[in-house]
């Protein structure tokens, strides 16, 4: 099945990004396609490489970046939401790209199922 994933919450404050990560990973491991992970609203903050969690905690941006590299995934960080929150090309980690909100509509059209995390 062709999945899309939508993330609306930022890192650490809520579990949504972690849940979305585990869901995406499990879907890929089961052989499903994940056409795009779209980061919207505070979800855009998951992309910043400036986060520095303590050493014994997970690094949310890095774990997303590593998953992207392993499966060559498409991560889109909404430009309008990103600008509002100080996220730009200078701060996003590897594997993320900033793109238009229309790319969420595109995945809603193309994916069999877009699963939303947070709101």
């Amino acid at each position: 099945m062709k999945f899309g994933v939508l993330i609306l919450e930022g890192p650490y404050q809520h579990e949504s990004s972690d849940s979305a990560y585990h869901f995406t990973k499990a879907a890929l491991e089961k052989g499903h396609e994940v056409l795009r992970v779209f980061f919207y609203q505070d979800g855009v903050i998951n992309s910043t490489k400036l986060m520095e969690p303590q050493a014994d905690d997970r690094h949310i941006q890095r774990q997303w970046s590593e998953l992207q590299e392993k499966y060559d995934l498409d991560y889109v960080v909404c430009v309008a939401a990103a600008k509002r929150r100080g996220i730009n090309d200078d701060v996003i980690g590897p594997g993320f790209k900033i793109g238009g909100l229309g790319m969420l509509t595109e995945v809603a059209i193309e994916a069999d199922r877009v699963v939303q995390f947070g709101a």
């Binding site: 919207y40 229309g102 969420l104 509509t105 809603a108």
Partner: peptide, 9 residues
């Protein structure tokens, strides 16, 4: 904002 963008598609 998402509604307005979707409307263009």
């Amino acid at each position: 904002e998402n509604v307005l963008i979707m409307g263009a598609y």
